[in-house]
Amino acid sequence: MEIFSFLAEHIEMVYIVILSIFVGVELIEKVPAVLHTPLMSGANAIHGVVIVGAIIVMLHIDVNNTLGMILGFLAVILGTLNVVGGFVVTDRMLEMFGKKKKK
């Protein structure tokens, strides 16, 4: 079966997936409801890591492939929006929490 040989070839990745699932579950389970929104927003910024994929595509695509270059350029913009917007919004939310701490 192709799928088994694929998994065997990528066994390290499979381990990463399984362990990451547990880490994700473990990290979130004891979060107070107050932090749900910032946490969702922070997680939202982290999946912006998909921009790494967009950059990789851009790096190995042929420059003369105009459609590809345009799509890649768009993907980089969208990914950056996700990353930068995500982290900045989260920071703004958490800034509010910090302010009242000082009082």
Binding site: H10, M13, I16, V17, S20, I21, F22, V23, G24, V25, L27, I28, E29, V31, H36, L39, M40, A43, N44, I46, H47, V49, V50, V52, G53, I56
Partner: peptide
Amino acid sequence: AFGGFLYDNQVMLTGGILVGSAGTIL
């Protein structure tokens, strides 16, 4: 995370799966 699989890219994989599982719990 699927992108991570495609490119054998660890950071995409960990980031993606973390958000995937944390997001589900949330």
